[in-house]
């Protein structure tokens, strides 16, 4: 009988952690792209997620077709917003890291306040498709069906992302750019176009995460900050630029945020902090040489 096992009460949080972690991964992978390929810290990344989330809240009505529609609209909107960020960055006269941070933060403020004025200051409810609205029983526990399906879908997205980075021409460019931006410039690819493409792709990923993840990290005035922080922590933990590392880090953060909270409710933020400190302290040297030599 499953209930006799010692870890049993923690099974649900652990599965939740996987869903949460995969969601954060999809959101964070966009940030990895921005940072690794275009050397941009996009502080508006959380806002792109929120765009997806609000779209889901507005369009989902419990049917499958509305989910498809929300996905299409949300991804399109977030992609456009990402491209807009890139265009504005290109137009800014001096694109150093400070102005990047200021500009993208300003855009996050603007975007956030536009979203609040359009959708209201409350957290809107999100209706998942009726077929997934119930719960299923796993190992003697009831568990939300949507989250289980989400785990499958997010894993699929992660797999597709891996394939795209490994097998396609664009993916090869991305990897080349992470290794050596100069090489890409030599190949005759316009860096401004690369920036637009990368930020649009990052926006698309954030949009997908926002729409599908709306029932898990729902849209609201604080969503953008939460998603940005979690993505940042995950990107830093994952080794700044490696997709595999980011996935592992996201899964770990998911467990800390769910299982960690269940085991030691007040220690979760400390755990995040400690994990980041430990990883960075261990990797500091390797990281530094990698980035500085670049």
């Amino acid at each position: 009988m499953a209930a006799d096992l010692g870890f049993d009460p923690y099974l649900v949080p652990a599965v939740d952690g996987v869903a949460y972690g995969l969601l954060v991964f999809v959101a964070a992978s966009g940030l990895v792209l921005c940072f690794g390929v275009a050397d941009i810290l996009n502080l508006a990344h959380g806002t792109l997620y929120a765009i997806g989330g609000y779209t889901a809240a507005a369009l989902l009505d419990g049917g499958w077709s509305s989910l498809v529609l929300a996905l299409a609209v949300g991804v399109a909107a977030a992609t456009t917003a990402g491209a807009l960020v890139a265009v504005l960055l290109t137009r800014a006269a001096r694109r150093n890291h400070l102005t990047q941070a200021l500009l993208t933060f300003g855009l996050a403020l603007v975007g956030g306040s536009l979203l609040v004025s359009a959708f209201g200051p409350d957290q809107p409810p999100v209706r998942v498709p009726a077929a997934l609205d119930g719960s299923v029983v796993i190992a003697g526990h009831r568990y939300a069906a949507y989250r289980l399906v989400f785990i499958g879908v997010a894993a699929l997205i992660a797999g597709l992302l891996h394939l795209a980075v490994r097998r396609t021409r664009a993916g090869m460019l991305v990897r080349a750019a992470v290794d050596d931006a100069e090489m890409v410039a030599v190949l005759g690819v316009n860096p401004a176009r690369v920036r637009v493409g990368v930020l649009a792709a990052a926006g698309a990923l954030a949009g997908v995460a926002g729409v599908l993840g709306a029932p898990i990290i729902g849209p609201g005035p604080g969503t953008a900050d939460v998603v940005l922080l979690l993505s940042l922590v995950v990107v830093v933990l994952g080794g700044l630029g490696s997709m595999g590392g980011t996935l592992l880090a996201a899964l770990a953060v998911g467990q800390i945020q769910t299982l960690g909270v269940a085991l030691a409710p007040s220690a979760a933020p400390f755990l995040l902090f400690a994990a980041m400190a430990a990883v960075l302290a261990v990797r500091a040297r390797g990281l530094a040489t990698a980035r500085r030599a670049a």
Partner: peptide
């Protein structure tokens, strides 16, 4: 230890 060997946008993050 987190920031001493990082530079640029990494420090910001």
């Amino acid at each position: 230890p987190l920031v001493v060997s990082a530079r640029g946008v990494v420090v910001l993050m």
